[in-house]
Design a protein around this nucleic acid. Structure first.
Length: 120
DNA sequence: AACTTGACGAGGG
DNA sequence: CCCCTCGCCAAGT
């Protein structure tokens, strides 16, 4: 048996647990990195059960830089509040700048010539 | 075993 | 910029 063989969900959780405080990843980005069989939708599906798995679920947002949990308990989405408490700044439209907060695991970052443009 | 449902995302109007 | 459509695939009924 392959002991490295983790369940479909565990692969997602393992990756999400690596996201640093104050940084985020998108559903599509996670699906692209995990590859085979993973799609933005299924990643979202899996994240629905993440809170009981000791996973920083709030750090996974959509490609528009906004939260899509739909959990609008207060004036603002709970997820957005959690991210704001980690230092992530959201606009009035409830979006954050992915160019600033997006995080890539080792070896998956943007090409060097593109990285420099992020610091202009 | 068939059908429905998403914490998505790219593309077109 | 907003709205709609369609592809994606694990899980729940």
């Amino acid at each position: 048996m392959n002991v490295n063989e983790k369940s479909y969900r565990e692969r997602v959780y393992a990756l999400v647990r690596q996201i640093p405080i104050g940084r985020v990843m998108t559903y599509g980005q996670i699906a692209a990195i995990l590859g085979e069989g993973y799609t933005p939708r299924t990643v979202g599906y899996v994240m629905h059960a993440a809170e009981t798995e000791n996973v920083p679920w709030q750090r996974v947002i959509n490609s528009q830089g906004a939260c899509s949990t739909g959990r609008i308990t207060l004036p603002l989405d709970l997820q957005q509040q959690m991210l704001e408490s980690e230092g992530v700044i959201f606009s009035e439209k409830r979006k954050c700048d992915l160019n600033i907060y997006i995080w890539f695991p080792e070896g998956f970052g943007p090409a060097e010539d593109e990285q420099t443009t992020l610091f202009t």
